[in-house]
Write a protein that binds this DNA or RNA. Structure first.
Length: 262
DNA sequence: ATGGTTGGCGTCCAA
């Protein structure tokens, strides 16, 4: 059975419920993983999504910050969440599809502005979060699993608009890239997006602060779709819906897609 | 070197 999955940092699911409806209507992924819902779970407008065929949801939320949700046309089993780095934030949730595939939805801490854990506690929390992800996947090697989300790191030189200019900018520093690569190695995760789109600049996020985000095109690939080796070769059709960044009152992130024939 | 924008909450914090 082939199914298409998308991941999108929505930056408030209540404010942008209309954009979620647009995406579900126009692109019709089977599963949509959202981050930064900024809403308690019981205030997510599930009825509006259910009316479009997305009646299944597994989510974790808190008031005002963070929050992750998995919306699906297909039945989901809630398989729990982890509070990496003990932050008490809603940044992870996992669900199992009926074909046995487990989907992990992550919102990794952004890490503040200063890439120095002595001066900036948030940067330390980001690195700790990634270390605990690494340790968890090392303890129990995942199988038939997909990991998606806003990982807040652009690992490759062609994942940012200017590699040299961003080496000291949080999201592209060598220590973060190493930490993310350690997570990948621990779980033997395959970067599905880059398996499909092997070359060239590729971005999923553009700052709100740019005057003309599209013309300036100073993007970063912060949003990822990974899979374990047993299913990664079944993936195809990866793409980033850049158009969504230009929709009315957009999120600063664009949705990332992949299809799996498991 | 700096400031630029957005959302949620509440008179500022996180991104």
């Amino acid at each position: 059975m082939a199914f298409t999955l998308a991941t999108w940092n929505i930056n408030s699911v209540r404010l942008r419920a209309g954009l979620v409806e647009t995406l579900l209507t126009q692109e019709a992924p089977d599963v949509l993983c959202l981050q930064e819902c900024k809403s308690p779970v019981d205030q997510i407008p599930l009825e509006r999504f259910a009316a479009l065929g997305y009646g299944h949801m597994v989510a974790r939320g808190q008031k005002g910050y963070n929050g992750v949700a998995i919306l699906s046309k297909l039945p989901l089993e809630d398989v729990g969440d982890r509070d990496f780095a003990g932050l008490g934030h809603s940044r992870h949730v996992a669900a199992r599809l009926e074909n046995g595939v487990v989907v992990h939805n992550f919102y990794v801490p952004a890490g503040g502005d200063e890439p120095n854990r002595e001066k900036n506690e948030k940067f330390g929390q980001k690195l700790d979060y990634l270390s605990e992800m690494r340790d968890w996947f090392h303890e129990g090697r995942p199988e038939k699993a997909i990991l998606v989300g806003d990982l807040n790191i652009a690992p490759r030189e062609d994942d940012v608009w200017d590699h040299k200019k961003l080496l000291k900018i949080v999201s592209h520093t060598p220590v973060e890239v190493e930490a993310l690569n350690a997570v990948m190695e621990a779980g033997a995760w395959v970067d599905v997006t880059r398996q499909d789109i092997t070359e060239g600049k590729l971005y999923s996020w553009w700052s709100y602060r740019a005057k003309d985000w599209s013309a300036a095109d100073k993007g970063r690939r912060l949003d990822h779709i990974w899979a374990t080796p047993d299913i990664s070769s079944s993936a195809y059709g990866s793409r980033i819906l850049r158009d969504a960044r230009g929709w009315e009152k957009p999120s600063d992130h664009a949705p990332v897609f992949a299809t799996f024939d498991v």
